[in-house]
Amino acid sequence: MEWFKNIYEWLLSLFWSTELDITLLGLQNAGKTSLLKAICGSDFTPDSIPTVGFAMKRVKVGRVTLKCWDLGGQPRFRSMWERYCRGVNAVVFILDSADPSTFDTAKTELHSLLEKESMEGIPLLVLGNKNDIADAIPVDKVIQTLGLKEITDREVSCYSISVKEANNLSAVLKWLIANRKT
């Protein structure tokens, strides 16, 4: 009966599967590419090449396919973020919570992006990465430093995670699947 079940699953997936567009943003070295790799199930590698432009990966979670646009975080690419956020189902903003020197820039970049008209109503998930490092700030501090309370026109969530230790990653996936703007 195994094959029958397979066919049933396949038929289900044919009619019920959904594809979600997700954009991963954040300053350089925040851990966007690593997060994407971790969600796909690969092991963590400490040194990865900076993303030039964007990379794209599909992740299958149950009957949902996540199309993840991993955008480069270097200053020259930031002006391009908005274009790749148009019409996506959710935006994930990642912060290196162990590097206070980046906080100010991250806040400015995030807010200037959210002000754009095309971004209206797109749910935002903020992730404070690298919580395995001792200096990392906790989640409420992240909310405070990025001024997330000021954002009222959309659904905003914030988690503290560690890609390296795989902390809280399942919560991230759950949020992504549950919060979809249709």
């Binding site: 030039v52 964007f54 990379a55 794209m56 480069g72 020259r76 690419f77 391009m80």
Partner: peptide, 12 residues
């Protein structure tokens, strides 16, 4: 200005 965006994807 924008062509540089596809660099990573092409590299892959």
């Amino acid at each position: 200005n924008d062509v540089i965006m596809v660099t990573s994807s092409i590299t892959r």
